[in-house]
Design a binder for these strands. Structure first.
Length: 798
RNA sequence: GCCGGGGUGGUGAAAUUGGUUAUACACGAAAGACUUAAAAUCUUUUGGCCGCAAGGCCGUGCGGGUUCGAGUCCCGCCCCCGGUACCA
């Protein structure tokens, strides 16, 4: 078949699948559910090869499972809020809604052209009012349960996008979207208190069937650390206490100074007379530095003395308090105790600023050395009654003592920070809050949702939300007292939209609730979730958080949304770079499909290499797949089937191929599954295919080449659809050859081999091996040792 | 720096728990068949070196080691990719 011929039959079958709605699932009736989900795409308007890799290749797994006595729900939708639409609006004066819907409709067509077996009857798009109504409802739900609040917070500010980014959205100190250097700024923002769930988000990672790598990343991101809070009274105002967090309370006697972050709320109070100017200048300069600059680049530890002192809780010594930006306000308590002898950062800081260094730990290995920082634990010295204890013991005993004095307690902190969800952007779900002069902050009643996005909006980014400039939107009445009031004009981070969409797919038209509870109970969790590794932290963590919150209030049947997760790799341009328009290395799948057909393109992508690996696009091997399909066609159509099995081993080969392909697809190892089919087809071509062979070959190839195989299936005299026909079965006892080749080694070197019946005794195998002439030549006496691997090899050591 | 993952032919890549002769399956290349010709298809060859051949030697980033046996395990090193960032 030529490419255009393929296109013709592909369009025919796609039309039939669509007309007969064969992939639409009646969720209420279905048995043996299998929720197959791809991370839904942003509707950029153009499908590139990477999309094909995600959606068309993972469809192979969905199609195989569907035929294995499962009802597969494989929905598709669009993560449709976000910056590109707004940028298009700013640049070209387009309406973001219309622009997005147009992209959706062209992407839908393109996605259908892949032959992927999506259930389009459940399509969602997060930018539609019937969806974001429930995103807003989620916000209110969080509000109701005390999991959201407006908080003045130092936030990452992207000067180019004029918006705030969550800490997690800052990549290497730069804006994840545009790459601009991010600066710190203090603004009132709505946050979700994801840190309330830190412990559970951490603990529940263990039981997930996810790549170990991804689980490790989640754990590291949450970053639990165990230690203690220690409180230091100020020398001048003993009522005021400075609280620090430390994981090394065993080094408490080595504290020679304290450091607070420049943004710490006590900084002004701590600044003593005569130091104001220096401190203010320092705080000012620190605000211009990004977190990255402060924490990473800086080898030189800058800082300024505040002029005030704190009292050591156990020795009552006076400790100077410094302001330094290597301490971050958002981490721990925003203040640390300086133990230069036993912490590298403190050591550097103390050396630079001539602060006292007191060693209090004798390292387990080596000697106390005044010129060296010792970070490993050991035995305490110079620590009053605690001297002689190990670090481990002292961590307990010192905290106990502090607790007794009311100056400390054990504590656990997390690296995870609360999730700032406010965005000063137009194209997102408006935050459903009203500010009233009398009633203060009032949530919009759920019945009044959605709070619709206005259309009379000036999009230009000024740092203020575009919605603030819409009179019709910002002016409203208070839902509580009816007086004139003002709406919140920020919109929600798009990660909020995608944190609950897998619930919505189950009942996208539901107007009574965000999802149908009976269906949720039946269909969740997602059985297989497939998406890029770049979402290892953010999206997956947020979705888990949402699911847990809903679970806690009986609105989710599960506390984890994604039972099994797998990543697909990234397809790079031929130049081994990420595909992008500016680099001109984007591979256009439409042209490939026009020339070779969808079956060839999706199968070639599957054949390229391990699915989780991705790699640069090379077109070279594409023709190999095309040739293979032509060979299959010949095997099924042109050559008459051998009337019966050609022999016992032919049947065995078929059974073992069925087994292999079935197992490989289940593990998403599409490349080796296809290789097994190719190798088998090569053999069939030589020996002739039986009717059973032809059917099995067609059937097994179906997930890869769904169109071609429907055609062949029909040719074999079956009714459509192969897409719904039972998956071929195999008899495990027939998947192994009854004869094996056993190799014979002398000292690990291959010297001969013989074919024999499998599963023989060691003695029988050795006897046969010794009959080989070449072996007799080497093996004159008794071997020193004989190793026998049943059915495989014999090694005589002489 | 740290944490993950990886380094196998000209190319994409195979190889249960260490167990055959590493390199399956493809691509590319070379030669041949068919053809007026081309395309398509088919056949053969294709890790390197030496050799007319038989055959031999070397070979999974580099150097050691364990083992009867190592692509697979251990130690040290080099390089590439992803994540992360002074976390107290």
């Amino acid at each position: 078949m030529t490419g255009p011929e393929r296109r013709e039959i592909e369009q025919k079958w796609q039309q039939r699948w669509q007309d007969d709605r064969i992939f639409a699932v009646d969720l209420a009736k279905a048995d043996h559910k299998f929720y197959h989900l791809n991370m839904f795409p942003y509707p950029s308007g153009n499908l590139h090869v990477g999309h094909w890799y995600n959606f068309a290749v993972s469809d192979i797994a969905a199609r195989a499972v569907r035929r294995q006595d499962k009802t597969v729900f494989n929905p598709m939708g669009f993560d449709a809020f976000g910056l590109p639409a707004e940028n298009a609006a700013i640049k070209h004066g387009l309406d973001p809604a219309a622009w997005t819907e147009q992209n959706i409709s062209s992407m839908r067509t393109q996605l259908q052209s892949t032959g992927a077996s999506f259930d389009w009857s459940k399509e969602i798009a997060t930018c539609r009012p019937d969806y974001y109504r429930w995103t807003q409802w989620m916000f209110l739900f969080m509000y109701q349960h005390g999991l959201t609040e407006k908080r003045e917070a130092p936030v990452n500010w992207c000067p180019k996008d004029q918006t705030i980014l969550a800490n997690e959205q800052v990549v290497g100190g730069k804006c994840e979207r545009c790459g601009s250097e991010v600066i710190l700024k203090k603004l009132p923002q709505w946050v979700f208190k994801i840190t309330d769930y830190a412990e559970r988000l951490l603990k529940d990672v263990d039981a997930l069937d996810w790549p170990e790598k991804t689980k490790t990343m989640q754990r590291n991101w949450i970053g639990r650390s165990e230690g203690a809070y220690v409180e230091f009274s100020l020398a001048d105002t003993p009522d005021t206490r400075l609280k620090v967090f430390t994981t090394r309370v065993d080094t408490l006697y080595g504290v020679t100074y304290l450091v607070v972050a420049p943004e710490h709320s006590l900084t002004p109070k701590l600044t003593a007379e005569g130091h104001t100017e220096a401190v203010e200048a320092y705080v000012e300069s620190a605000s211009h530095k990004s977190e990255l600059e402060r924490t990473e680049l800086q080898k030189q530890k800058t800082g300024v003395f505040s002029g005030s002192y704190a009292i050591h809780p156990l020795t009552a010594e006076k400790l100077p308090i410094w302001i330094a930006d290597y301490v971050l306000a958002t981490v721990g308590t925003g203040a640390v105790m300086g133990v230069p002898a036993h912490d590298e950062r403190d050591w550097e800081f103390a050396k630079k600023h001539d602060l006292l260094i007191v060693a209090v730990i004798h390292p387990a290995t080596g000697e106390v050395n005044a010129n060296q920082v010792v970070t490993e634990p050991g035995k305490l010295i110079n620590s009053a009654e605690f001297s002689g204890q190990t670090s481990e013991e002292a961590k307990q005993t010192i905290v106990a003592k502090l607790k007794e004095l009311g100056l400390g307690q054990p504590a656990v902190t997390y690296r995870l920070r609360d999730w700032v969800v406010s965005r000063q952007r137009y194209w997102g779900a408006p935050i459903p809050i009203v500010y009233c002069g009398t009633c203060d902050t009032v949530p919009v009643p759920a019945a009044e949702l959605p709070v619709l996005l206005p259309t009379d909006v000036d999009f230009k980014p000024t740092g203020e939300s575009p919605l603030a400039r819409s009179e019709s939107f910002s002016h409203t009445t208070c839902p509580r007292c009816g007086n004139a009031a003002r709406r919140e004009t920020d919109t929600l981070d798009t990660f909020v939209d995608s944190s609950w969409y897998f619930f919505r797919f189950l009942s996208p038209d539901n107007t009574a609730a965000f999802t149908d509870q009976a269906l949720a109970k039946k269909w969740l969790p997602v059985d297989l979730y497939i998406g890029g590794a770049e979402h290892s932290v953010l999206h997956l963590l947020y979705a888990r958080f949402f699911t847990k919150v809903l679970y806690d209030h009986d609105l989710s049947p599960v506390s984890e949304p994604f039972q099994k997760l797998r990543h697909q790799g990234t397809i790079l341009g031929p130049d081994n770079q990420k595909m992008s328009k500016s680099k001109g290395n984007v591979v256009d799948p439409d042209a490939l499909v026009a020339e070779h057909g969808a079956d060839v393109v999706r199968s070639y992508l599957a054949f390229m290499g391990p699915y989780n690996q991705g790699g640069p696009w090379h077109q070279g091997g594409l023709v190999g797949v095309e040739r293979f399909f032509n060979r299959v066609e010949r095997l099924v159509i042109e050559s008459a089937a051998a009337s019966s099995e050609v022999g016992d081993s032919a049947g065995r080969e078929r059974h073992s191929v069925i087994k292999k392909v079935t197992e490989e697809i289940a593990e998403l190892r599409f490349n080796t599954a296809l290789a097994a089919l190719m190798a088998w087809a090569n053999n069939l071509e030589k020996r002739g295919a039986s009717r059973e062979d032809q059917e099995a070959l067609t059937s097994l190839l179906n997930p890869f080449a769904p169109h071609l195989t429907e055609e062949l299936w029909q040719h074999l005299g079956h009714e459509p659809y192969l897409a719904l026909a039972a998956w071929p079965e195999f008899d495990n006892s027939l998947t192994v050859e009854d004869r094996v080749i056993v190799v014979v080694q002398i000292n690990g070197r291959l010297r001969g081999s013989f074919e024999t019946q499998r599963q023989q005794s060691e003695a029988a195998l050795i006897r046969q091996a010794r009959q080989i002439e070449a072996i007799q030549h080497y093996l004159t006496g008794e071997p020193k040792k004989t190793i026998v691997v049943p059915d495989k090899l014999i090694n005589f050591v002489i």
